[in-house]
Design a protein around this nucleic acid. Structure first.
Lengths: 230, 230
DNA sequence: GGCAGCATACCGACCAGACGGTTTGTTACC
DNA sequence: GGTAACAAACCGTCTGGTCGGTATGCTGCC
């Protein structure tokens, strides 16, 4: 899953309340391709590949939103993806549809990240909740600019379509985590804290590695029925 | 402080990680004034009052942002405040400046709300943190549309200037609350959870009164050194 | 009190540019 | 050759911001 050698973005672990896995803004990755044989480190395959272009567009959208905030223009996203605006419109008929798809995409990747982090040896209650915590914090620690994720989430949230989809999918998480064998109040607490650490950098600035690590351990302890220190 | 009889907006309690106290969208309040004596339920004072106009503009901005999201036009805000766009530009030289001022304003009101909620009879450690929790949840419960606050915060966060100011001011809170006699980890946990409940409605939909009440009580217990149920 | 003179609050029209979206044209794949 | 995948030019609309002008409030002076 990790790309890193080819492109720049570590396709590793996402995290956050809405899911993330945003290709880091530095790692641009267009929809282009080499001429004849697998030449450079670029992508193989046919010159025109709808799936690849779509992927590039979504990644570009995520990066552009992080940089330009809510006012991203379709043109910016298209150019960032190495595609014309017409090309973008071919894949997403409107801006709303693009951002909605982006929300879906991020959520899916976050979901996968959580699944990946479910420890097979962990049979105690709260194993899924722990995976959720890990997915959230892994992603936060991966980013250089801690504000990235928060900006992205905030922006998406302010677009009705994207917010709506996020809400729909989020319900599933809540229900799924409720059946994890942990006291409901603890589940609520942990989930809200995860939301908080994801969004806090936006208002508070970067959180600091120590603070992040401490909070992660604390939340993990909570999932195990332990309590915070007095 | 409560206006409610004159205008519609209850100037009561704010809440949230960045501070709020947004006049509810329904309660419009322009910068106009009666003709000669204190006629109707409108505002007294001179025909032209810079402070009052500024106030009206900030309130209108808050309401408009909630409704229209990040793409609020200056014209919309101005009309909502009963002022021309030229008038708005007189008070705020740019959109960034308007939203920056809005962030400042919300933060100030939230700060006041916390101060108001410090229980004078409460001398146990964590009294300020408890006031913080109350301020946050009071505001959340006050709103009909639970998404309001979240939308507002998210939008402001996506404007650099507003986010920057918020970050500056937020530092103070963290330092101030660290000296409240509560274990630092608990402080972190409570703060992050407050951030979470404020922003969660955006992704998850409204949280429900029961859930809110439960979470509030849980956080309050945490400030008192008690632990969550096993 | 009233009045001149000035600072300021505010209006309304305006503009250059950007934006979302459409249409039309061109090229690669099956 | 037909269709999907794009590119490029284009359009109407709207936005942030500017500007000249006007009305109002205020302060000192009589």
């Amino acid at each position: 899953m990790a790309r890193d050698t080819v492109g720049r973005w570590v396709t590793g672990p996402p995290g956050g309340p809405c899911g993330t896995l945003v290709p880091l803004p530095t790692g641009e990755q267009t929809a282009e391709r080499p001429s004849t044989p697998p030449e450079e480190g670029t992508v193989p395959g046919p010159l025109r590949d709808a799936a690849r272009t779509r992927r590039a567009l979504l990644d570009a959208a995520a990066r552009s939103v992080v940089v330009h905030g809510a006012g991203v223009s379709l043109d910016t996203v298209a150019r960032e993806a190495g595609v014309s605006k017409g090309g973008l419109m071919h894949h997403f008929r409107s801006k709303d549809e693009l951002l909605g798809a982006l929300a879906d995409d991020l959520f899916e990747q976050f979901t996968r990240a959580v699944e990946d982090r479910v420890d097979p040896d962990d049979v105690a209650p709260g194993r899924r909740l722990r995976a959720y915590v890990h997915a959230t914090f892994d992603d936060l620690e991966r980013r250089e600019e801690a504000v990235e994720l928060a900006t992205l989430l905030a922006t998406l949230g302010s677009f009705p379509e994207a917010a709506r989809r996020s809400q729909d999918r989020y319900r599933h998480w809540n229900e799924s985590l409720a059946e994890d064998g942990v006291d409901p109040q603890r589940v609520l607490l942990v989930l809200r804290a995860c939301d908080g650490v994801s969004i806090a950098p936006l208002f508070e600035g970067p959180l600091g590695r120590d603070e992040l690590a401490t909070t992660r351990d604390l939340l993990l302890a909570l999932t195990r029925g332990e309590g915070p220190p007095a």
